[in-house]
Design a protein around this nucleic acid. Structure first.
Lengths: 177, 177
DNA sequence: GGCAACATGTAACTTGTTACATGATTCC
DNA sequence: GGAATCATGTAACAAGTTACATGTTGCC
């Protein structure tokens, strides 16, 4: 469904192998979409059958060969058609919030440790986003092609800041109780 | 995996039928976890086999019978054991952010309309959360059992406010371009 | 008469996860 | 010698979605 479109979006940037895509999903666009490598290889096969991407094998000495995929005109058309469809609200699945809901039925020490771990993860993520912003968008201005990426990054930064503040306030209250 | 635990959490509140649970997932805890009714019925069957819930049929005149599920002691134990496991970072899948990433390859009018629709959805959600907060937690104080629910609600409110601000700033920039 | 809500479920399908499988090179 | 990185994939399973199926009551 949308994974195929996310892959096409990545390939508008530059041609990539399945391996590259897996890493790209793990780093660059991990905030909006996640995918594991079996999923990516499976989807690339389908996209190739549909003619949305083409592959060509790059022979490498020593290392195994790379199969590099590029988006086709049909792929670009599919992307544009998809962009006109209505968007779904992002789905959230959060273990930690579910546990909070049943606060009287969970292990409170474990919960505190989990909130602390979450706080640390959000702080780290925020730092990474700041780093990317400083590297790619220093000054705040972006060329038109990159405006969307900058806005995505701004959302990420705001999102992490929100979580950090929330975790801190939750920890305070949990430690008092 | 975690859906079964989310169901158990709901059942700590009160016994419920599959239908009730589906509505509960749709309203109360929709922010943390979503589930459709076929999924819920399927999971309830498994949970009953494992002894984590028991069901008893409530005969109703006119309407079809309700099969009401209650959590068992084994279910409560399973919940506590699960609460000690490490939590995963919440996964996000957001179509809109993916489109923004490829801003030069999407239909810009459609994108603007989608951001406006998203903004409206977040505003509506925020209003609902405010309403719940005013109804259930007026004054801000919560009894210990409800503290987790209040904190979850606070996160929801903050989350929606963040999205609203972001959508507004994005719209402004998209309309300028 | 038609639609919505109540109430339960199945079937078919698509997505997503985890583990397995292979094999070379480079770094410690 | 062992672990990590590069690079591709398959198989089995779990989770999630969509459409189908049935039948009543109450409201407009």
């Amino acid at each position: 469904m949308a994974l195929s479109h996310a892959i096409l979006v990545c390939l508008t940037e530059r041609p990539m192998s399945g391996y590259d895509l897996a890493k790209f999903f793990d780093t660059s666009i991990a905030f909006f979409w996640k995918a594991t490598h079996p999923q990516i290889y499976r989807e690339l096969k389908k996209l190739e059958e549909q003619g949305c991407v083409t592959s060509n094998e790059e022979v490498q000495s020593g290392k195994p060969n790379r199969k590099v995929y590029s988006i086709t005109d049909a792929g670009r058309d599919a992307l544009k058609a998809w962009s006109r469809e209505p968007v779904a609200l992002p789905l959230i699945k959060d273990d930690l919030l579910v546990r909070l809901q049943a606060i009287e039925h969970v292990d409170k020490d474990a919960l505190r440790a989990q909130v602390r771990a979450r706080l640390a993860a959000h702080r780290e993520q925020l730092e990474q986003y700041h780093h990317i912003r400083d590297m790619r968008f220093s000054g705040g201005a972006a060329v038109p092609e990159d405006l969307g990426k900058l806005m995505g990054l701004e959302l990420g930064i705001q999102y992490e800041q929100g979580w950090i503040a929330w975790c801190e306030s939750v920890l305070e209250r949990l430690e008092r109780a």
